[in-house]
Amino acid sequence: MRSFNYQRATDVSQATTLASQPEARILAGGTTQLDLMKCGVERPATLVDITHLQDLHDITLSDGELTLGTLVKMSQAADSKTVKTFAPALAESLSLAASAQLRNMASLGGNILQRTRCSYFRDPQAWSACNKRNPGSGCAALNGLNHNHAVLGTSDSCIALYPGDFAVALTAFDAVLNLQNSAGELRSVPVTDFFRLPSDRPDLEHQLAPGEMIVSLTVPRSATLARSHYLKVRDRSSYEFAAASAAVGLEMEEDNLTIKEVRVALGGVATKPWRAYQVEQALKGQRLEEKTLRKAAEKVTEGAIARQHNGHKIILAPRVIARALMTVGGLV
């Protein structure tokens, strides 16, 4: 690990100013940043500690939205009665992620910004060809072991998977990330727009500018959020990333038989948290029936591209969506 300078920020303005320096990185829980430093992917000259900024630790609820500070711990949000009541899919996505020890350390902002677990990306000593780590070098995963790589949102430059759960739930329910830069300027970016597709520049993963940091996130309150669910399918029952996951929400018509509104986002299969708009459109106004749900869920794989070892994700993804919708709809 490269030697680095350590600086503790006293407020957001100082943190963003320090973070705008060349080769500086923000440090919160450290569960992603330190991990990347240990494997040699990240080699920052300076770490800016923001963990003592108290105004970034709050969970608040208003008539219109739920707001979570960027330094709220994963475990704090997962266990929050407010989050469980008004946004159950968010709480479930957090409780199913990582381990109890990591959830007690990791911040929500850091969790959103976590980077891929692609083994070719995370082992620079063994693999030089990684466009995400070394632009223009190629992608070793294209013809390598790609069992856990993406089938949606890929390009010829990168098929690395976005690994998180929480951002998938945020994507389903139109969450917004609130960002602040070193000039004190604030801007809000929808989560659906925050993450970039790899295209020919997979090293550019999101819309966060140098010297800018996430200070909070807001989720609009809605009937679909209140009646929501997060389903995660994985190779083992705990401490494992998703083979496929789905965050869903339902609002029914007064007859309680017809779908009025629906929200669907997919994880574990794409290069970014994946909003399934085509599935939502196909289900609005339809009766809540298993056959209808399964048929609509198949639309999520339109445009999916399987590589040698990950074709199972194209089969699994619609089944996970349908199962999640049946669960929240009371059909199972």
Rank of each mutant, 00 (worst) to 15 (best):
M1S: 12
R2V: 13
F4I: 07
Y6A: 03
Q7K: 12
R8C: 06
A9L: 08
A9H: 10
T10E: 12
V12H: 08
P22M: 12
R25Q: 10
T31S: 13
T32K: 06
T32Y: 13
K38A: 12
C39G: 03
E42Q: 11
P44L: 07
A45I: 03
A45R: 09
T46N: 01
D49M: 10
H52L: 11
D55F: 11
D55V: 06
H57K: 15
L61K: 12
L61Y: 13
S62H: 08
G64I: 03
E65M: 11
T70E: 06
L71H: 08
A78N: 05
S80G: 05
K81H: 10
T82P: 02
F86A: 04
E92R: 14
S93D: 08
L94I: 06
A98R: 05
Q101I: 09
L102G: 03
N104Q: 06
S107C: 09
I112N: 00
L113M: 14
Q114F: 02
T116Y: 01
S119D: 09
A126N: 14
K132W: 00
S137L: 11
G138N: 08
A140S: 15
L142C: 02
N143S: 12
H147S: 06
N148K: 07
V151A: 06
L152K: 09
L152N: 05
G153C: 10
T154D: 03
S157V: 00
S157T: 03
I159C: 04
L161Q: 06
V168F: 00
A169D: 02
T171V: 00
A172C: 00
F173E: 00
D174P: 00
L177R: 03
L177A: 05
N178I: 07
Q180C: 03
S182F: 14
A183R: 07
R187S: 08
R187K: 12
V191S: 03
D193N: 11
F194T: 01
R196G: 02
L197E: 07
S199G: 09
S199T: 05
Q207E: 14
A209Q: 13
G211T: 05
I214K: 04
V215L: 05
V215E: 03
S216H: 08
T218K: 14
T218V: 09
V219I: 15
A226E: 14
R227M: 06
H229M: 08
Y230L: 07
S238A: 14
E240Q: 11
E240N: 09
A242K: 09
A243T: 07
A246P: 02
A246W: 15
G249D: 07
G249M: 12
E251I: 08
E251S: 14
E253M: 12
L257K: 14
K260G: 06
E261H: 15
R263W: 10
A265P: 10
L266T: 03
G268Y: 15
V269Q: 08
V269C: 10
V269Y: 11
V269K: 04
A270I: 13
Y277Q: 13
Q278H: 13
Q281W: 13
A282T: 00
A282D: 01
L283G: 04
G285Q: 08
L288N: 05
E290W: 10
K291D: 10
K291V: 01
T292K: 01
K295Q: 14
A296P: 02
T301E: 01
A304S: 10
I305R: 13
H309G: 01
K313S: 07
I314P: 04
A317V: 03
P318F: 14
R319C: 01
V320W: 12
A322Q: 07
A324S: 11
L325D: 04
M326L: 04
T327Q: 15
L331D: 01
